[in-house]
Every structure is written in structure tokens, then in C-alpha cells.
Design a binder for these strands. Structure first.
Lengths: 254, 254
DNA sequence: CGAAGGCTTGATAGACCTCAAACACAGTGG
DNA sequence: CCACTGTGTTTGAGGTCTATCAAGCCTTCG
């Protein structure tokens, strides 16, 4: 993957994105908000299919996704790829390394994207002075963990059909939480091969299962746009329960 | 599952167990150590196959495993069970709920066990005053997350044979880290059905794969004792790399 | 317009599942 | 001491879900 992205000075909305993420559960004290607003952010435009962090790295900055789609993935010893998560704007992509030091996964951008790099050093300093902020960052990694558990359950115990329905429900909820849905649909530029690598399925089987979902009227797709005409029906098909995502339904944030 | 366990006052070694866990990566300041030593612990003997926490609960205490084996698991909508992790003495079983509020999994004891309950309230108070301690607790949940990612990769992309070999390697390393191995072996009272629920396999297939591993001389089992005569060979069979566990090789703790 | 990437389809194969029953072993009670 | 029970392990026989291989097709883009 190439690395010829151009780097720009951070603007203003970047900090707002981060704050929205950190305050998803509970508002921060105003002093903490101000401090977050002063974090350095190196903003960068990233071309499609580019890695922004590598398995085995010990990054000194944390990557915040501002625009576009990204995923975390592992390459296993025999060359297989497992995608671990998909990400929407506002997600912190590699916060895990702040305490563990080493990344056990890679992070790659799917569509053209914008990301902001924030030095771990600054985040750590900030957390020393603001326990509430530590809790907010911690909480974010805990939700990550809850999602991993849900995915593990799906890959371990659900059928291909259910897994795909479940994934699409999850994606809808995540996208909706950051206000990027419109008319029961959203832009989902993830290939069938990538869906397969996320769900432990072959591309061919993903294709056939998607056709089945379309035939059942559970999804409609044109290009990279995905529409879910009857969310409750898809939910039922995928045995989806959004509790594990810990998102407030829209408009009910604290 | 019954709940007729007897409860006793905490003794002394319990706090040492917790400290060993928290200092796995880095020693704590002595004041923090003393504070940890003053945490309340309600110790309880738990009979085999008993739940100590339930999916959907909002516990007010955190459960520390002192003796025996435990696992976290989910029951999915169609009744399937997915085991998410296996635990050895010293593990914190449901720390996730401290920030998330609700548990998205259940915790059950496998063999007869001893656990200690620690009030979240006290842990939180302690973390307010000691950022280094917050980091230690956070780190523990981050390692949990790294293990979930590895399991997800295995269930998604590895064969049954590899998954089982990988799991047994992981169990060996975890048990060894707390000093409970002897002569290349350890007590592993986990049934084949449980292994199946952990790896997304049927009991029958687990049985056949285990036989294959025995035939290859990679494992020896008598009753619940498991021996690994050639760890490097099993490692190769399971594509196992212990990096994600973030354990110091024994005797090299900080 | 050709190339590239992604989607779709067909045919075949295999890994793993389900059902069903037998076996082994430990604990219980008479 | 020996049936008796329960749980876990093992074996056999089919069946199916999903993978693999191999093309063909479609859209986008330089």
C-alpha cells in the first residue's frame, strides 16, 4: 500500500469529533473539554486501500478516523487475513497500543479517508490530570472489546446468512450514530471479499448469501449504497441486539 | 446453577494475587500497593459449573478468580453457546462492567473454585487517586481484548486442528504464567463440549481432532491432566505466537 | 478501448455437523 | 460389593454448509 498521502494542519471539526466520541456516554467537565480541544492533531488525507498502522508496530500516535471507512485486520501465520472491525468517522483506531505498546493488528483505510494523528504522550499527560477523561478513553476500548466478543460469537456460532445480516445491522447502527445515514440507507464501500474476511467466509459464499438477503427483500444495494427497508426484519434475520454497541439512539446523547 | 456456596472472610494471599496481576507489566508505586492491599474482598468457595455473573447484570462488584478454572460465555438468541475466554487464578473476570455498566456475557466456574468479590466503588475510588493503578486495570482489559482478537482470527480463519492446538498452547502459557504447570503439563478440567463451544466446533469434531493431536504425539492426556511433550511442535501446529498474551516469560517479571 | 477490480455463476470437493448409540468412569446407595 | 446413574468420551454413518477452482460478466477509469 502506498504512502503518498498529503499532510495538512488540523482545522477545527477534528476536536469536535473526538469530543463527541468521548462524551458519548457522559459529558466531560468543561476543563477536560478544553484540554481535549488543545490536543495536537496531524491531519492527513489517505488514499483508498492504504495502511495507517501495522501489526507489530509500536506507534507513538493514535489514529482518529475523520472521514471514510477503515478496518483493523490481522495477517495470520499461513497468510490468511482476518478483519477484526470496521470503522466509521469518529472511531479511535489504535488506542490499544497506548498501554500495550505493541499493535497486534494492522489498520487500513478502505475508501479514501481523512485521519488525525494524536500523540500518545499528550493523551497520557491529559489523562494524568483528568481521571474522567481516562474513563472515557477506557470506555471506548471496552466497547471495542464488547464488539469483538459479539463478532467472536457470530463467527463461532451463527450461520453465514445470520452473520451477514448481523454485520449489516451493526454497520447501520454505527453509521447512524454518527449521522451518516439517509433514507434507511448509507454508503458501504466494503467489498464482498472484505466481508468474507471479516466473517470467516469465502467471497463466493458471501456473494450467494447477499443474493439471498436481497431476494428476501431484507437489503437493497446499488453500487456501494446499502439500504435496509425493514430494519426489524434484518435484525431478526441476524439475531441482532444492539446492546453491545453501547450507543445512545440518535438525539439522546447526554 | 445453584448458589449454595459458602462465603468466608478474605485471608491474605488474595491481595497478593491481585497485585501480581496488576504488576505484571510494571511495578506499582508502594503507596498504590498498600491501597490495593486494603481493598475489601469477599471470598467465596464456588461449586463446579456455577455462574458467578450473568449476561445483562449490572454488578456492583468485580470478581477475581483465586483458584480453579472459569470461563466467560454468551448465550445467543437461538440458544447457541459461545465461550469467550477461559480463566486461571489471578484473572479479573468481569472488570468490563466497571465502565460499561452492563455485562454482555456470563461468567461461570468450570471446576470447583474460589473467587473474591471486590466492590467497584472501592476500585474506582482507588483509581481516582492513583493514575498508575488505572493504567494497570486498563491494561488488563486491553489484554483481554487482544485475546478476543486472536480467538476471532482463529475461529474465522483457522482449521479445527489448528484452533485446538492454538487453544492448548494458550492455556499452557496462561497456566504457566501463574506457576501451575509441572513437567510440561497441567490440570485442564475443560470438557470437549466446552472446547467446542469456545472454538465454534461440535463436540464430535473436537473429539476427533484431539485424537489426531494425540496420534501425532503433540499432546498426552490422562483424565483432566494435559501434557505437551513438545511445545514448539504444538506451537507450529497451531500457528501460535504468544505475543498477544503480553505475559513475561516466567521469572522475568518486573 | 483495454485493463483491473469486483461481482456473479457453475461444478465439485471437503471440512465439519447431526443423529444415534456404545463405552468408560466416578459417585451413590442399598 | 455391586448394580445404578450421570457425565463425558468415543465411534459410525450420513448429510450439509461452505470452500475451492474456474470462468464469464460488468463497471470504472486511465
Amino acid at each position: 500500500m502506498s504512502d503518498d498521502a498529503l499532510s495538512t494542519r488540523g482545522g477545527f471539526g477534528e476536536h469536535a469529533r473526538l469530543l463527541r466520541k468521548l462524551e458519548a456516554a457522559r459529558a466531560l467537565p468543561s476543563r477536560a473539554r478544553e484540554e481535549v480541544g488543545r490536543l495536537s492533531m496531524r491531519v492527513r488525507a489517505v488514499p483508498p486501500d492504504t495502511d495507517v498502522a501495522h501489526q507489530g508496530d509500536s506507534p507513538s500516535e493514535c489514529c482518529l478516523l475523520l472521514e471514510g471507512w477503515a478496518c483493523r485486520y490481522k495477517i495470520l501465520g499461513r497468510g490468511q487475513r482476518q478483519i477484526l472491525s470496521f470503522h466509521v468517522p469518529g472511531d479511535l483506531l489504535d488506542l490499544h497500543a497506548i498501554e500495550l505498546g505493541v499493535l497486534d493488528y494492522s489498520v487500513g483505510v478502505i475508501s479514501a479517508a481523512r485521519v488525525a494523528y494524536i500523540p500518545y504522550r499528550e493523551i497520557k499527560a491529559l489523562m494524568e490530570s483528568e481521571p474522567r477523561l481516562t474513563a472515557a478513553f477506557w470506555r471506548d476500548t471496552l466497547i471495542d472489546g464488547a464488539i469483538f466478543r459479539e463478532w467472536l460469537s457470530g463467527v463461532g456460532r451463527r450461520s453465514a446468512h445470520e452473520r451477514i445480516a448481523h454485520l449489516l445491522c451493526e454497520m447501520y447502527v454505527k453509521v447512524d450514530a454518527v449521522g451518516l445515514t439517509s433514507d434507511d440507507g448509507f454508503d458501504f464501500p466494503v467489498t464482498q471479499a472484505e466481508i468474507g474476511d471479516a466473517l470467516g467466509l469465502s467471497t463466493v459464499h458471501v456473494n450467494r448469501s447477499l443474493q439471498e438477503l436481497r431476494r428476501q427483500g431484507l437489503i437493497i444495494s446499488r453500487g456501494s449504497r446499502l439500504e435496509i427497508p425493514d430494519f426489524e426484519a434484518l435484525k431478526a434475520a441476524g439475531d441482532f441486539n444492539p446492546m453491545y454497541l453501547h450507543v445512545q439512539p440518535r438525539g439522546q446523547a447526554a
